[in-house]
Simulated assay, not measured.
Amino acid sequence: MIDPQQRFHDSLDVLDWDDFPGLYRRLTPRIVRLLTADRFDHAMIASRLLAAGWGTWPAPERIAVERVRHAWWRSALHAHPGTGYITHILETLSVTAGTLAPPGWPRGPKLAPGRQTCT
């Protein structure tokens, strides 16, 4: 039987540590699971997703991120007590989308590239 810890370390050996966008794209499923469980810094993850260029990823991966964003927002609105601070969730969704409108709402004011303020 293969040791799970060894399998994890072996999988790290095949990652290209010099290709941040590619590396982050491969790690995003794990990161998003922890993010939506409120176990990561929301602002940091949002900025890393932008740095990895998630909006330019292949369609299946980009659509998966969009679906998680929508589901996370709906879940946050319907959970009582909440699964995290709604403002942190909204901040993450707004930064990653480049708009102040939550998923499923009409698009709000656009955020200036690289900034967290409205243009």
Rank of each mutant, 00 (worst) to 15 (best):
P29A: 07
G55P: 07
A76H: 00
L77D: 10
G114N: 08
A51T: 10
G104Y: 01
T117C: 09
T56Q: 14
V65R: 01
H88V: 04
G22L: 07
S47P: 05
I86N: 00
A43H: 03
W73I: 05
P109Q: 08
C118I: 11
R26N: 10
T28S: 15
L77G: 15
A46D: 01
G98A: 04
V95D: 02
G114L: 06
T96D: 00
L35Q: 04
K110W: 08
I31N: 12
L90P: 02
G108R: 08
G82P: 03
M44C: 09
P113F: 08
R115T: 14
A71L: 07
A52W: 12
L50K: 04
F40K: 14
K110C: 10
R39G: 09
P102M: 12
A112K: 08
L100S: 11
R33F: 09
W73F: 11
L49Q: 00
A52V: 14
T87G: 03
P58N: 12
A64H: 05
R62G: 02
V95P: 01
A64N: 11
H80N: 11
V65C: 06
I86C: 04
K110A: 08
T92A: 01
M44P: 00
A76C: 10
T28W: 00
S75T: 11
S47Q: 14
T92P: 02
E91A: 15
Y24M: 11
A64C: 06
I89C: 00
R69A: 02
L100W: 09
R25I: 02
R33W: 03
I86P: 02
K110F: 06
A71W: 01
W73R: 06
G84V: 04
H80C: 09
Q116K: 09
A112L: 09
V65T: 11
T87R: 03
T36C: 01
D38C: 03
I89K: 01
E61I: 09
L23C: 15
C118W: 04
P103M: 01
R74P: 00
A64R: 03
R33K: 12
T83M: 12
A101G: 11
G104P: 11
E61R: 13
L34W: 09
V68N: 08
T87L: 01
R25A: 07
A43R: 11
T28K: 07
A101L: 06
M44V: 14
G84D: 01
P29L: 03
R48K: 08
M44Y: 06
A59L: 11
Y24D: 02
T83K: 07
